[in-house]
């Protein structure tokens, strides 16, 4: 974690496949104040406060008692992410409810984790979720693979504090993430080969009009 005493810069949104994000259960705060940002530690050695994912929204589920909470499941070629939006994410909540699963979506959100029945579980608290065309999914898979590759390359660097911390918490067997990334690229490539239309859908995103439902801003 980089230390600095100035004001907080915006945290970059990391790209990590589900296979890795699921395992990123170690959480730390930067700084001591109550408002200090929290980070999940990626096993390949990077701190993630925010993540950006493009995947398939497979499920949206309402909470039985709390109508100010909605959760969902997002899949990429390597696994699943749990996503949710609560009381303070009005807009994200409305958007999650509006999208009919299954659908390709882009999610920008905060990486976080909680104590589940069988240990710590990671999830993404949604800040922004929108439907996207398949072409952007291809983009993301390529990008996530490239950035995972970069982290793997830098893992052994002497001054890579995040990697040292990751090794301490998770061990240094990164083969799983490496294989998962390659598998994701391979499967995506096959999809493109089978279905050329996937690529052509680059212009604009959703062609239908923005609806007037509950725009809260």
């Amino acid at each position: 974690m980089s230390s600095n005493n100035g004001t907080q810069p915006r945290n970059p949104a990391r790209r990590a496949f589900a296979a890795e994000f699921q395992d990123a259960t170690h959480q730390e705060r930067q700084g001591n104040s109550d408002r200090a940002p929290r980070y999940q530690l990626l096993p390949t050695g990077e701190w993630a406060n925010r993540v950006f994912i493009i995947g398939t929204l497979t499920e949206v589920e309402e909470h039985e008692e709390n109508d100010q909470y909605v959760k969902g499941e997002l899949r990429d070629p390597t696994g699943r992410y749990m996503i949710d939006a609560g009381q303070y994410q009005d807009k994200a909540r409305a958007h999650m409810r509006r999208i009919d699963a299954p659908e390709y979506v882009a999610v920008t959100g905060k990486a976080t984790s909680f104590e589940g029945e069988r240990g710590r579980v990671t999830k993404v608290r949604v800040e922004l979720i929108t439907e996207v065309p398949a072409g952007l999914y291809d983009h993301w898979v390529a990008e996530a693979a490239a950035q995972t590759g970069k982290r793997l390359e830098q893992y052994g660097d002497e001054d890579n504090e995040a990697a040292a911390k990751a090794e301490e918490n998770y061990g240094s067997d990164l083969n799983k993430y490496h294989q998962a990334s390659m598998e994701a690229v391979r499967s995506n490539k096959e999809d493109i080969e089978q279905d050329g239309t996937v690529q052509s859908d680059t212009e604009g995103q959703n062609t239908e009009e923005a609806t007037a439902e509950s725009p809260s801003d």
Binding site: G204, Q205, A212, D217
Partner: peptide, 18 residues
């Protein structure tokens, strides 16, 4: 009767654009 739809439209059109 709401300019928020404009913002909404932009978000849906451009979020995740490379």
């Amino acid at each position: 009767s709401d300019r928020a739809v404009v913002r909404e439209y932009i978000e849906r059109k451009t979020h995740a654009e490379y």
